[in-house]
Structures are given as C-alpha cells and as structure tokens.
Design a protein around this nucleic acid. Structure first.
Lengths: 110, 110
DNA sequence: TTGACGGGTAGGAGATCTCCTACCTAATAT
DNA sequence: ATATTAGGTAGGAGATCTCCTACCCGTCAA
C-alpha cells in the first residue's frame, strides 16, 4: 500500500481521463475503460493501480471482470488545499472580474 | 514557454510548498525561498521556473533580486475540474455531511 | 477438460524528473 | 576597477514514469 499522493496521481492526463469516464459512466470493467485509449490494456491497468493506491478508485470483482468505481473522497484534500488560494484570487481580481468570470468561461476538459 | 500543465506543476511537494510560502508571506526573492528547503538554490530556481511556466508565479526584478509572487489564477482550472467530483461526493456522503459543509461556502459575495 | 477471455504482473526501453556542482551574467559595494 | 552578491543556465547522475510485449492465473463456455 504505497499510499500515493493524490496530486501525483492526478498529474497524468490518462489518469484524469479515467476518473472522468468513471464519473460519467459509473463503474466499468477494465476493457471498457481501455477501449477509450490509444494505449495498451496493461498500461491502463497500471494507471488504475496508481489511482487505487491513491484511494481514488475502488475495484470490485464480478466473475472474471473487475469493475472500477470512482472514490472521490481523496479529492477533498485537494479542495481543502485549494481553499486559501481561492480566497486569495477573489481578493486579487476584485468583484468586477469575479462577476464576469463566474459562469461565462468554457470549462476545459481532459 | 512550454505552457506546463497546472496538474503537473503541483505534483511536486517542493513546488506546493513554494506556493504556500508565497501565499503566506507575499512576494519573496529566491534566497528567502531557498532558505526554507534542504535543497540547493539552483534547484529551487528550477522549481520556480516550472511554476512560472505554469503561470502560477510571476517574477519582478528589483535591483539584483527577483521577487516571485503568487499568481493563483491557473488554480481556477483545478477548481473547475474538481466541481463535478465535488457534486458526486456530496451525493455520496449524504445529507448530514452536506449540511455540515454548507456553512463553509462563501455565498455572500454581493 | 480444453479453450477462450478478462485482467494482473514482470521486465525492460526510453523519456522525463529531480537533484547536484560548475559556471555565467548583472548589479551593488569598496 | 575589483570583489561580492543574487540568481539564472549547463550538463550530468540517478531515480522515477510511462509505455510496451510477454506471460501468468482465474473464470466461463464447449
């Protein structure tokens, strides 16, 4: 149980995409996940392992498949870490900018 | 101008600590920052470069010193990325937790 | 039972990261 | 002018990351 840093786990775009898939579609077996990537199935397995070590996904066996499911709790650490910076940028940008940006920006996806 | 991923920039603990120092103490020259670390000054410089490429710090010259200052704006991308997961865990954890957290939400930005 | 399928693990190649010491330039100080 | 100080850059060693192909075991189907 290496207990990997959630920041490190999120550093890789493929892993963020895996989380996104699990968020959008619920629990999925490895093959369904791997089908979304150009890379090999074993590589996807390794990314899933990193996510599991970070506590970001759980796995449950069903016959010969393993369903991976999102476990978003560790992301709360990220949110907590972010909080003081969020306060800082609100002060910095001021009310005008805050109002303008609040809903108008296109969210970038990974 | 590699335009580095903010996730990648935050993957390293030393870089997160640098951001924390700048958050707590405001703009600081490299030496003041480097003094907080076991590592060499040039290594700190390299970390600052990564943060600068990610848009997370800015630098301004003052004589022979360079003051680095926090630029938290790119962290908004992180917050945006986090939003759907936050919604997910609120649902998952249930109402009790939601009610407890709700008060921490700064809804009062007239 | 035998085969096919789902998926983890091993080992390794190549890229990238993280740190170092040397060295360089620009700016102040004597 | 010369020495000192702040700090960036070069180049490299060693660790880690990311991907691959092979191979393994467990589960289901014939």
């Amino acid at each position: 149980m290496p207990d990997i840093d959630v920041f490190a786990a999120l550093a890789n775009p493929a892993r963020r995409q895996l989380l996104g898939l699990l968020l959008d579609s619920g629990p999925l077996p490895v093959q369904q996940l791997a089908a979304q990537f150009a890379m090999s199935r074993p590589s996807v397995s390794e990314h899933l392992k990193v996510l599991k070590d970070a506590g970001l996904v759980g796995e449950r066996k069903a016959g010969r498949q393993r369903y991976y499911e999102l476990r978003p709790e560790p992301l709360r650490d990220l949110t907590r870490w972010l909080t003081p910076y969020e306060r800082f940028w609100r002060e910095k940008l001021g009310n005008l900018r805050t109002l303008l940006d609040e809903e108008g920006d296109p969210a970038s996806h990974d």
